[in-house]
């Protein structure tokens, strides 16, 4: 068992640190292919990170220590979040616990760090993105917590590892409320990872950007950290979805293979949905999230009628 846990720890670290940039790269490559374009290689994000790592940072005026602390803090919080999520229904103990609510808090901490950095330089574009990010955060956090609450009450715990283990024992998506919660989670996952129709990761146009906004004042290694953090957020969103709704039991090699397969499915699904939809109007986001909350409410009512399993 301890070998499994060690292997899970390796998968967590490898996924978060090394493989995460592959997700935006792969999504972009598949997306371009679907659109009949050749597109960049899936490895393009790594090349960009390497290029940025060699460059020096910038020093906007005005700024305080907040400017320099924000990217590392956002990265540290997001990495901690990645270490909370079990892989293959196994949760290694990093000493941070494994609580679902803490994960939501850590994502909020990353958001706060970037918004404060935007205020620090006072750059108009950075603040535009930060203002949008924070204005939608209440809606998205409400939806995310609704999904987490459904999963947690179903499993009788908020420990992500135990939720995954309990869900892995049951047949895949056996209860209707799980289907509905998974649907709602898909909305949050798209938004948290900054993807269309919520956000457009490929643009620096002030009309459309949300997550990219606060990044505008950064360059060099700090920008590399922030881009890597954005990739880790996408990894966390996908792996969290797998852990909550589709963990696979059985032998360890099968679990890892299933995880890899599900991540690949998620990448293709993201690419298809990005190809099919345009970015939505900003003011429609709350309604979009509201639809997710309504779906969650239906899920809870269904359980109320059907009785807890």
């Amino acid at each position: 068992m301890s070998a499994t846990i060690a292997a899970a720890a390796v998968v967590q670290l490898a996924g978060a640190v090394a493989l995460a940039p592959l997700i935006p790269g792969a999504v972009r490559a598949v997306e371009r292919r679907l659109q009949g374009l050749r597109g960049p290689s899936p490895l393009q994000p790594y090349r960009e990170l390497r290029r940025l790592w060699r460059r020096s940072g910038v020093a906007p005026v005005p700024r305080t220590a907040v400017y320099a602390v924000a990217p590392p803090l956002a990265a540290a919080a997001t990495l901690a979040a990645a270490l909370l999520v079990p892989v293959g229904a196994v949760a290694p103990d990093w000493g941070l616990g494994g609580d679902a609510l803490l994960l939501v808090g850590l994502l909020a901490l990353g958001r706060a760090a970037l918004a404060l950095a935007a205020w620090d330089t006072g750059s108009g574009f950075a603040l535009m993105g930060a203002a949008r990010d924070l204005a939608f955060a209440p809606y998205l956090e409400a939806l995310l917590l609704a999904v987490v609450a459904i999963a947690a009450v179903g499993a009788g715990t908020t420990d992500l590892g135990e939720i995954a283990a309990a869900t892995a024992e049951r047949p895949l998506l056996s209860a209707p409320e799980q289907w509905l919660a998974a649907l709602a989670f898909a909305l949050v996952a798209v938004a948290e990872s900054g993807r269309r129709p919520y956000d457009n990761p490929d643009t620096h146009l002030e009309l459309t950007m949300i997550h990219e906004g606060p990044l505008l004042e950064y360059a060099g290694r700090e920008l590399a950290l922030l881009q890597w953090t954005a990739a880790v957020r996408q990894w966390v969103a996908i792996v969290l979805g797998v852990a909550l709704f589709a963990p696979v039991g059985g032998p360890w090699a099968g679990r890892v293979a299933a995880l890899a397969g599900l991540v690949a499915v998620a990448v293709v699904a993201l690419a298809v949905s990005e190809t099919a939809q345009a970015k939505m109007r900003l003011l429609r986001v709350p309604r979009w999230v509201g639809a997710g909350v309504a779906v969650c409410a239906v899920a809870v009512v269904l359980r109320a009628i059907g009785g807890a399993p």
Binding site: G57, A59, T121, S123, L216, E222
Partner: peptide
């Protein structure tokens, strides 16, 4: 790690 990358001369925020 980020600070070891160095920093360019101060300049106004982008407007």
């Amino acid at each position: 790690l980020a600070a070891r990358g160095g920093r360019a001369a101060p300049a106004p925020a982008w407007a």
